[in-house]
Simulated assay, not measured.
Amino acid sequence: MSDAILRPRRSVLYMPGANERALEKAKSLPADALILDLEDAVAPDAKADARERVAAAAASGEYGYREVTIRVNAPGTAWHADDLRAAAEAGPDAVVVPKVESAETVREVERALEAAGAPDHTALWAMVETPRAMLDARAVAAAGERLTVLVMGTNDLAKELHAEHVPGRAPLLTGLSLALLAARESGKVILDGVYNDVKNPEGFEAECVQGRQFGFDGKTLIHPSQVEPCNRVFAPSAEQIARSRKIIDAFDEATREGRGVVTVDGRLIENLHVEDARRILALAEALDGRG
């Protein structure tokens, strides 16, 4: 399992690139990753200043264990090319590109990053947020070497579908499932979309639980108050950790003894259960390693 897959991304917080105080505050927030935003959070007349500020923040090395990414403006906008060049020079952990709808867009962005001298460690995160992106998610996910993460843009998807935001997200489930299938087939990380009502912590936590049950690796967030509950929901529970250890121990013992059938608490255990148990323990170990 690659380091890119194992790196915790339970909570991924958008931070407005034009807000210097927000960028400073992010250094103390317990988010696993930050998206320093040059797109939706920045007015057109503030784009250039925000670009310089975000590039300096990403290059500063002052965010500790937090994965630092830069969200550029979408392909086709007046700011996209300059954003990519500045991000490549800053060398963040990743560049987040909105409105990715095709494999060719992934390849174009990768070529632009390489031409601008982006270091090898700077990955590409592709936002999938339109009907076309859902239908072409398989090709998008498999398109590039730098591409490590798919990010759901559920607000834009709902807008494009003319769908309502309702508890349980029934109108979006087909798109969420298509993107998840694409990510898992290609071995990529996938992050759930944002929850808009910051005054509804119960609704937010319910959506975190739904996302975890679906199989998302974490969730994108719009407010610092969402970080801690998100971290809790997407972290392996003590019960999961204990059961995972039990599964691995039982399987290893059966292998040593040459037994073909393994059961834990009355349930048949196969290789797939062992692989999942090892994934859970690896994530727990990565989180413990932060001290």
Rank of each mutant, 00 (worst) to 15 (best):
Ile5Gly: 04
Ser11Tyr: 05
Met15Phe: 14
Lys219Asp: 01
Asp136Lys: 15
Ala4Ser: 10
Thr174Pro: 00
Arg85Val: 07
Gly144Ser: 13
Ala94Cys: 10
Val54Cys: 06
Met127Ala: 12
Asp192Glu: 11
Ser2His: 09
Asn73Asp: 01
Gly76His: 11
Leu272Asp: 00
Arg290Asp: 00
Arg53Cys: 06
Phe204Thr: 00
Val209Cys: 06
Arg10Cys: 05
Gly61Ser: 11
Ala59Trp: 06
Pro167Lys: 14
Ala43Val: 09
Ala115Cys: 02
Glu207Lys: 14
Asn200Arg: 12
Ala139His: 04
Glu270Ala: 15
Glu129His: 06
Glu275Leu: 15
Val189Met: 12
Arg138Gln: 14
Pro16Ser: 13
Glu257His: 05
Gly266Met: 11
Glu145Cys: 07
Asp32His: 13
Leu221Phe: 04
Ala26Tyr: 03
Asp265Ile: 03
Arg278Ala: 14
Arg259Gln: 10
Ala284Gln: 06
Ala242Ser: 04
Pro119Gln: 11
Gly64Asp: 03
Glu285Phe: 07
Leu84Ile: 15
Val140His: 02
Val106Arg: 04
Leu287Trp: 07
Asp93Phe: 07
Ile247Ala: 12
Ala22Glu: 11
Glu207Cys: 12
Ala31Met: 13
Ala158Gln: 09
Arg53Val: 02
Arg256Pro: 00
Glu114Met: 07
Leu178Pro: 02
Arg243Tyr: 13
Ala22Lys: 11
Ala94Lys: 10
Arg85Ala: 14
Arg212Cys: 10
Ile222Thr: 06
Glu52Arg: 15
Arg290Asn: 04
Val72Trp: 03
Ala137Cys: 07
Cys230Ile: 15
Arg51Gly: 00
Pro171Gln: 04
Val264Phe: 03
Leu157Val: 04
Ile5Val: 14
Ala43Cys: 07
Arg146Val: 00
Met127Lys: 05
His273Thr: 07
Gly211Arg: 08
Arg243Ile: 03
Asp3Arg: 14
Ala182Arg: 02
Gly61Asp: 06
Ala59Asn: 06
Ala126Lys: 04
Asp3Asn: 07
Arg132Gly: 05
His162Ala: 15
Ala182Tyr: 01
Asp197Asn: 14
Asp252Val: 11
Ile70Thr: 02
Leu113Asp: 01
Thr174Trp: 11
Ala123Arg: 15
Pro75Val: 11
Arg9Asp: 02
Trp125Glu: 07
Gly153Val: 05
Arg290Thr: 05
Pro201Thr: 05
Glu104Gly: 12
Glu89His: 10
Val209Gln: 10
Arg279Gln: 15
Glu67Arg: 12
Thr77Val: 12
